[in-house]
Design a protein around this nucleic acid. Structure first.
Lengths: 340, 340
DNA sequence: TTGTAAGCGTTATCAG
DNA sequence: CTGATAACGCTTACAA
């Protein structure tokens, strides 16, 4: 089955390509009968415009690019879903790329996207991205760019993220109000700002409640902040501090679940002996026993909102209306379950 | 910053566009000095070929399309990851679409992908897809198509999937060998073949071991085979059969986890009172207590393999070598944990 | 070794 | 109302 072109339709109808094109696009200056003949034939031939030709001509691709660190992640899967929904609504397609937390890959992918002529780009930075020339290049090219979740404050573009600091602050404050006094924090690596902000929120909550900050209660989770980190550091915590600690705030649910496993294996009860508060509201946190208290980040909404802003900027650019970059902070939500 | 073209390079160098093009593509018939001059200038101007023009000319887009029912699913996230890895390796980009288990959407997305001129398409069918005209159209257009996981046996194209029936058979046989005699099955909806096959494997295993098949031990999970299905049907099971049932094989880990929750809430011990065997090896199955025995589907590998075949077909098509469609069955693996 | 010209399929301008 | 023509940026016979 061959692909049908304007030319073929024109020849069959003995009219010009121009007229066919106009008829198909509902230009006013085509007679009703001609238009109908064209429409009918196009329909029966199942004509679809060649998108390369259209893009070449129109200088736009109806495609956006998305770069995320990892697809296999509850949070990002949901973000993607939000983006896809919004794209669908706007008749746009989404090219997805995964940086694997590699700065080099991220850079390469930006170039690929740019060379592909996408109309806009959505990025969540890799943990190892500390230079932003590649993103600045996107901006210089005039291609709309929206950063989400893992952002850079210095870049002049729209951003969508959560207030990690406040979310952490609220969670820890909640623990304090519940009567906990020795609250440990299992934090993530140093690089992503999120990790720092959550730590700062934790610290601030302590200070504001006259609990002195004890650095020995902070444990660093380096292995990608995963289950094993939680398990091992839980062991360490008990060695270091015995049963004096009465609550733990973790940077991620997964770590909390690792802790739970260790506690379960060693007869420590949650929340009776130690309370637990996670972050991210992974699906599994709702189905384990005890359920894990945590912070919901509204990933789907982050995806939706980011894409929404991107499309707004794309449209503005097409109309030559000036673009005002937006900074949207998506509110988080505390989810209280049995663990605290 | 404007995008730079061959023409601009040609003008600056006072040579023809042709020569520039040839120099850039390492054609032999360009003098060394000219080539070098072109290369240098292109480099310093950060020249990138306009992909629309290239695609229009070459009739290929270096892009493939992927349609899956849902991004937020452990299995599909991993498949995507496998696909992206393989695409990256082949210098291809991936357009991702989500059908939301809707036949209409899937159809529309196929058309979009086709009109976009992708070089190949990867699809996992929606549960509601029972007609295949849209996919036949892809084949008729001569666009390579690979179906994975949720496939149609009737279509003439390559396929990658697991042997659901055998996997289920093995799991149930294992339970029988462990001494279980009254084994219930929480099955999925009727539509996707996977659900039927797993059920058939279950049934066959019973028969082959001289255990008569009891239809009242089969529970249908309609709500997307999720946690609540497991929870509610666990309650029903106990009402119907008291404590006579000694094992349950579920179509999905999530259902098993729902069951676990119900059992946990009602003092029933796993595996002492009832053993549990799931399917899919969701990440959480490894971190809960007790760990859930299950079937690993190797989603990442399915994605990788599907993409691999697709690229093989795309290349074959370009070389006009005849394509032999492949049917690959990815071996599953039983994961034994505490629940059985 | 270099350049001319045609063509990929579409849209926009302008003349008839 | 219709159509010739140019242009988008690139590749590739074919000439020179």
């Amino acid at each position: 089955m061959k692909t049908v072109t304007l030319k073929q339709i024109a020849e069959k109808l003995n009219i010009s390509v121009t007229t066919v094109s106009k008829a198909l696009k509902d230009y006013p200056d085509v007679s009703k009968t001609t238009r109908q003949r064209v429409l009918d034939l196009a329909q029966s031939l199942d004509y679809t415009p060649n998108s390369f030709a259209v893009s070449l001509r129109m200088q736009q691709s109806k495609t956006i690019g998305v770069i995320i660190p990892d697809t296999v992640h509850h949070f990002f899967s949901n973000v993607i879903k939000g983006i896809l929904k919004e794209a669908e609504k706007n008749d746009y397609m989404v090219i997805l790329m995964q940086s694997n937390e590699s700065f080099e890959l991220e850079k390469k992918q930006i170039d690929l996207l740019l060379s592909k002529g996408v109309d806009g780009i959505l990025v969540s930075l890799s943990n190892n991205t500390k230079k932003f020339d590649h993103l600045q290049k996107v901006i210089n090219y005039g291609v709309p760019l929206v950063l989400f979740d893992k952002i850079s404050k210095t870049l002049k573009c729209s951003k969508v993220f959560i207030d990690d600091r406040k979310a952490a602050y609220d969670a820890v404050t909640y623990l304090i109000n519940k009567g906990h006094k020795r609250i440990a924090h299992f934090r993530g690596d140093l690089n992503p700002q999120n990790s720092i902000d959550r730590f700062l929120g934790y610290k601030q909550a302590l200070l504001d409640n006259n609990i002195s900050f004890d650095p020995t209660l902070v444990y660093m989770c380096n292995n990608n902040a995963d289950f094993d980190d939680g398990y091992k550091n839980a062991e360490k915590l008990l060695k270091d501090h015995g049963n004096t600690v009465d609550a733990i705030f973790t940077i991620t649910d997964l770590i909390a679940i690792g802790i739970m496993k260790y506690f379960d294996d060693h007869g420590i009860r949650v929340p009776e002996d130690i309370a637990l508060f996670g972050f991210s509201n992974w699906f599994m946190s709702s189905v384990i026993s005890p359920g894990l208290s945590t912070v919901e980040q509204h990933a789907f909404q982050i995806g939706e909102e980011s894409a929404h802003i991107l499309f707004y900027e794309i449209k503005s650019k097409m109309n030559d209306t000036p673009i005002e970059h937006q900074t949207v902070v998506i509110p988080t939500e505390m989810i209280f379950r049995e663990s605290s």
